[in-house]
Design a protein around this nucleic acid. Sequence first.
DNA 1: TGGGAATTTATCATGTACGGTAATTTACCG
DNA 2: CGGTAAATTACCGTACATGATAAATTCCCA
Lengths: 93, 93
Amino acid sequence: MIKSPQLEEWTKKIGQRLRTLRHAQGLSLEDLSRLSGATAPTLSNIERGTRDVKLSTLVSLTAALRTELPLLFEESQNTDQSSGLPGYDLDDD
Amino acid sequence: MIKSPQLEEWTKKIGQRLRTLRHAQGLSLEDLSRLSGATAPTLSNIERGTRDVKLSTLVSLTAALRTELPLLFEESQNTDQSSGLPGYDLDDD
DNA sequence: TGGGAATTTATCATGTACGGTAATTTACCG
DNA sequence: CGGTAAATTACCGTACATGATAAATTCCCA
């Protein structure tokens, strides 16, 4: 895979946003793994921007994080759903 | 690949937008193939929404179409650069 | 500072996106 | 209609995203 600067920018930006969203909800990689179906190592790679991620993966991750896909691409956004969320019930799998 | 309704929505929406953008610039699949590096069959599949496309592909396509990646994901947008474009010079590759 | 949780890294297997190419079908325009 | 361009479909081969799992590393807090 030839990695253009453009692609690198996006993979990093998207990864950071996913991690921010996950942390904002107090989820570990394993938590999100359970919620999304992606394995923890895969999530780690994606959040660090080392993967050429597929659309299907982004869709399932945004669903698991209860956010919208376009949020990952918006130019300037407030990922700030900082603390008080409706809340995941981690026992409900 | 398990295809959720969500994913299907996005692949179709993105495909349609890409095709609209391409047509708006009077490009054939082969034209865009030359500009983007993706082959014409691949482009055909993506535009018809039959592919779980990778981020790198979307990045190169939006670059070739001289548009921005977030445009593919925006909720309501005007893809309407209908007719009179600055215009590609197909000889300049 | 010690120890468990969280994350990262490392393997291996599998599925599939994508390139390349050719053949077929469809669309368009005289 | 007929013919050419455009698009779709069909193969094959390769690369790599991802799952599954385990090991190593880093984090963090009592």
